[in-house]
Simulated scan of single mutants.
Amino acid sequence: MPEPAARAEPTVSVVIPVRDDAEYLERCLRALDEQSSPPLEVIVVDNGSSDASAAVARRYGARVVEQHEVGIPIASATGYDAARGDIIARLDSDSRPGPEWVATVQRLFAEHPEADALTGSGLLETDDGETQPVRSRLYLGPYFTLVRWALANRPVFGSAMALRRSTWERVGDDVCRHDPDVHDDMDLSVHLGPDAVVLFDDRLTLPVSARPLQHVPSMLRRGWRGMYTLARHWPREHPLGRHARRLRARRIAARSD
């Protein structure tokens, strides 16, 4: 009996939006250079930087895409539009992926053909490398719990996520790419829909900078942006309506089975 054909692993484009964050970006790109399974490409979207971010990206062989309209949503969407891989993985400039991160993304999508997107979480880390697991759980635990309830589905975490390029092509025209006040990952989660298959795997969780939580005004602004992102899509994407749509999708799937 012939051996079964080896399952081809999907190609991965890594997208990193950046604005004036050359030091952290270099650390992230150095980590990507050490991947056991190198990505097809690394796309750094330079969002109007005045520092050496673009030069750092080119030094590491990344493809630099310029986007002068300032805002994380437009920078992220520009990178996703430019991606050529089967899978679009998203990191932030202060993400620090371990050497198996890309390989894990490939393996999980190959093992789960039903998945539209994958996500991990973040482990907050100070500038001197001290991890803060308790603070991470206190910050990101409520995020996943509350936003999952509001969306009737698991949200993706923008510093450690991936989605199929076909999924992006389905929702890319609908996301709020020109509104700099939305949380781009939460907005993407809204448009994926309550019936999308979004898987969480802790192997995708990685260290991220604790900078956003160092000052109260920054924390308050992040909270306000989260509420604004959700409310911007009401009444169409109100939590009760999304839960009803998810239940209908499950009933239809059950009848089909």
Rank of each mutant, 00 (worst) to 15 (best):
residue 115 A to E: 01
residue 174 D to P: 01
residue 96 R to F: 13
residue 133 P to A: 13
residue 96 R to E: 09
residue 116 D to E: 10
residue 209 S to I: 03
residue 159 S to C: 09
residue 231 A to P: 04
residue 6 A to Y: 07
residue 2 P to W: 14
residue 71 G to H: 02
residue 191 H to D: 09
residue 113 P to Q: 06
residue 208 V to W: 02
residue 220 L to D: 04
residue 187 D to P: 02
residue 152 A to W: 05
residue 34 E to N: 07
residue 88 I to Q: 04
residue 200 F to W: 05
residue 8 A to I: 06
residue 222 R to I: 10
residue 53 S to N: 08
residue 93 S to C: 03
residue 77 A to G: 00
residue 94 D to H: 09
residue 117 A to R: 05
residue 186 M to R: 05
residue 89 A to P: 10
residue 242 R to P: 02
residue 52 A to G: 09
residue 131 T to I: 13
residue 30 R to A: 15
residue 163 L to N: 05
residue 8 A to H: 04
residue 149 W to S: 08
residue 30 R to K: 10
residue 83 A to D: 02
residue 138 L to F: 05
residue 34 E to V: 03
residue 157 F to V: 14
residue 119 T to Q: 04
residue 20 D to G: 10
residue 185 D to V: 02
residue 121 S to T: 11
residue 45 V to Q: 03
residue 106 Q to P: 01
residue 103 A to W: 04
residue 129 G to H: 04
residue 54 A to T: 05
residue 36 S to Q: 09
residue 101 W to H: 09
residue 144 F to S: 08
residue 176 C to W: 13
residue 231 A to Y: 07
residue 242 R to M: 10
residue 63 R to D: 00
residue 145 T to P: 01
residue 122 G to D: 10
residue 140 L to E: 08
residue 41 E to N: 02
residue 68 H to C: 07
residue 155 P to V: 00
residue 121 S to N: 09
residue 111 E to L: 15
residue 72 I to G: 06
residue 126 T to V: 00
residue 228 Y to G: 09
residue 230 L to G: 09
residue 232 R to I: 03
residue 63 R to V: 00
residue 24 Y to V: 08
residue 35 Q to P: 00
residue 86 D to V: 01
residue 167 T to L: 09
residue 89 A to N: 04
residue 54 A to H: 11
residue 169 E to K: 08
residue 177 R to Y: 08
residue 173 D to G: 15
residue 61 G to D: 01
residue 179 D to Y: 03
residue 60 Y to F: 15
residue 1 M to T: 06
residue 246 R to F: 12
residue 88 I to R: 06
residue 129 G to L: 13
residue 114 E to T: 13
residue 98 G to M: 11
residue 142 P to S: 06
residue 245 R to A: 13
residue 181 D to M: 15
residue 100 E to H: 09
residue 108 L to M: 07
residue 154 R to S: 10
residue 154 R to C: 06
residue 180 P to G: 05
residue 131 T to A: 07
residue 125 E to Q: 14
residue 133 P to I: 08
residue 237 E to H: 12
residue 233 H to R: 15
residue 194 P to D: 11
residue 198 V to C: 11
residue 4 P to K: 01
residue 102 V to D: 02
